[in-house]
Structures are given as C-alpha cells and as structure tokens.
Nucleic acid binder design. Sequence first.
DNA 1: CGCCAACTTGATCACGTTCAAAATCTGTGG
DNA 2: CCACAGATTTTGAACGTGATCAAGTTGGCG
Lengths: 223, 223
Amino acid sequence: MQLHHLATARTFPSPLPAAPSDPLEPLGVVQSFRRDQEIYAEGEPANYCYRVITGAVRLVKLLEDGRRQVIEFLLPGDHIGFDLLPEHEFSAEAVTDTTLKSYSRRRVEQLAEQNSGVARWLRDQTARDLRRAQTRIVSLGRKSAAERIAGFLVEMAERTRGMGNALNLPMARTDIADHLGLTVETVCRTLSRLKQTNTIAIAGGKISISNRHQLELVSRELH
Amino acid sequence: MQLHHLATARTFPSPLPAAPSDPLEPLGVVQSFRRDQEIYAEGEPANYCYRVITGAVRLVKLLEDGRRQVIEFLLPGDHIGFDLLPEHEFSAEAVTDTTLKSYSRRRVEQLAEQNSGVARWLRDQTARDLRRAQTRIVSLGRKSAAERIAGFLVEMAERTRGMGNALNLPMARTDIADHLGLTVETVCRTLSRLKQTNTIAIAGGKISISNRHQLELVSRELH
DNA sequence: CGCCAACTTGATCACGTTCAAAATCTGTGG
DNA sequence: CCACAGATTTTGAACGTGATCAAGTTGGCG
C-alpha cells in the first residue's frame, strides 16, 4: 500500500498551543500515522500518552454487532490518554494523516510524582475531559438530532477557530453520525436543512457557518 | 417543612469503603440532606467536595425548557466534585435522605500540593469518573432502551452489591428515565417486559434480579 | 380511610432509522 | 486532461422504536 501524500489542505495550520508544561516536553517523540491507521487498540496496555500535533484522532468503541460510537475527536493541541489508567478502554484511530507527540506513560508518572505542578496539570487535563464527556451525555441523552448537529458545528468552530467562518471538518459524515448517536442519513438531511435556511453553507464538501447566531439558537432548540 | 424520618430501608447498609487516603480524612465534616434537597447548584463556586456516607445523590443538568438529564448517581463510598474545577457545572441533589462528608476544596488542594499520594489519588478518582462517563456515552449513543435499562440494573447490582439478588434502587423511575435518556413510560414498560420473561421480579416496589445471566445478555442485545 | 404522588398500561403519533437509489467527490491510469 | 471506478454524500419512501397523551392502579402517609 502506498503512502498518501500529506493532505495539507486538511491539516490545521493554526499555531499550536503551548506544551503542557516544560518538564514534560523533552520526553516527547514525534510519530506519524496514516488516515484510518490505528494508534492503539481497546484493551491494550497504556504505555504511551499523546499530544496531537497535526491532523485529527477519534476515540472509538466498537460493539460486537458492528455498532460504533465515536466517543471523542481530538484535534491539534489536544491530549490523549493522560489519565494514566493502566489500560486503554477504547481504541484510537487517525481520522486523517496525523502526527502525534508521544510520551512514555511511566516517565510522565514519575515526573508527576516529583513535580506537583505536573501532577496538577494532569489532574486538570483529566477534569476537563470529564466535563466534556458529561456535556456529551446531556447532548446524547436529551437533545434532538438538529440540536446535536448544530451544537457539534458550534463546538468544532470554537475548537478549530478556523479562519473566519470556514469550518475545517476533517472527519467523514459517518464519523459525525457515530459521534452524535445518529445515522449518516440523518446527519446529511439535517445539514441540508441548515443549508436551506442559510444557517450554514456547503461548497465543495467544505462547510462554513453563515449565521452563527442562528446555529446557536438551533443548538438550544430556541429557534 | 418537617424532617423525614431516616428511610433506613432505602439506605445502603453495606460496610463503607475505606477513606480515600488517611491525610484527607480529618478534614471531613458530616452533613445531612433531606430527600430532594439541593446540595449545590449549577454555576456555583465549588468550595467543597464530598463523599457519600449513606443515601444517594444525583448530578443533574436542567435545560431551559424543562428537559432533564441525570448525569450520574453517586452511592455510598462515591466521591463528588474531586475534580477540583473552580465551578460546579451541574447541580447535585439528594435522591433520598443522605449524609455526606464534606471537604474544603482549598484544603484538599493544598494537601495535594504537598503530598503526591493525595495528588495521585485525586487523579485516579477523576480518571475513573471519566471512564464511567465515556461508557455512558456509548450507552446513550448506541444502545436500545432495553439494553440501557438492563445495563443499568446490572451496574446498580454491582455498585450496591445488595444482599443477594435484591436490588436497592433508591431513585424513582423518573430519575432512571432521565439518566438513561428515556421517558418514565418506556422505563416502566421495559421493566414489565423483563418481569414477564422472568429476568427480574418486582414485589412491593422492590426489584430483584431473577436471572442475572439473561439480564446481561439483554444488556448486550444478544438475547 | 382518603388523598396525592408514583407507577403502570394502553392508543396514537413522530422522529429518526432502514432500505434503496441517485449524485457527487476522489483518486488513478490511459 | 479526461475517463472511469469506488467511496462518500445526498435524497426519497416506508417503517419502527420510543415519545406523547390519556387513563387507571398502586402505595405511602396524613
């Protein structure tokens, strides 16, 4: 199989957030993954944690009968596996060609033992992930398809702060559907409806937000 | 308003898990809450964190139009708010009459600063909560009503390890529904169906598991 | 005993799914 | 550069799970 040439158009060119903490940084090793390549598998011992440099990663749970849940998308600057639990409960896959910086879990743990700043940073990191997961629970438990999709677009706009209103969504519709607990068809139809109401625009496969205010209203079912 | 007498029948009499860590324990102060009493509100500064002694607590998100999501139930031995983020994102309410031990967030933070064991315990605590939340995401995103309810019963059986097969569910059907992203009616109907198939028994409002194996199969849609 | 809240059951409805097909995009080779 | 092939996205029609609306039933507590 041949290497994809690096899809620079699908990459996030914005300046990367600062390293988590200086003492951690020298431990990192750059690693590259091709589109759809597995970074680690469910149940594997967690020997490394990662920071996304370019590209995007999805955390995935695959049920025995083929149903799939994308638990989380990780974008440049995001951290993976810093909860330092001994095993990965979900698998991680590259959404597009991706580069990560990987850190030895053992070394990070040692560092946290000695340096309370690092320990604190780890704690805050995990706490933020927890908040995000809990917010997702509300969305999946109590929101309509339109609310979830509008909310997802707003969230992605904030997380990528792409130039202007152009959203850079590296993932396919299927990934979005599996993230929001919907089917591809529902995602497409809802996007089409948002387009018809001039809330978003879809040109050449790229989505941009035409009416951010309206999109936020829809995400709260206050239309 | 009059005090309810302590609903001992609805309380968890099992031996309480050990304190998180000795140095933390002397900071704790016992506090009591009546059924449905608010422990803290959404958006409030998080000055305290808690450990459940008896009773049960629900973490709740209330949407502007009245929809409700119970993000999490906390049972005796469980910890609340130890992520030490500055504000509570959700409100906490007593499901039944409840006693908590409360800890000053500031003092806990200081302790973590000095004692890397405490810091590590905090991190692990938050990491476990994160795992639980992520598992819930899978359930809400990709599981049917029957799967969610069966899974919930199994989970509660494990968490309470009630005497034998008798489950002690302190929360009302509405709470269960709002936890699983369903309506009360669906919860009732599904419980009735589980009863008809002799998977569970409902007597005097109390649920007990008749066929644990079957229940686990249903929770994985392998019936 | 009688009231009110919680639970249960039934009938109908709607949102999102499923199945199916068409349109568009991507990449590859001539 | 265009043509073709496979994958992804979009649209359409029928269906089904769980929601909604409505009416009983049970249980706790005065």
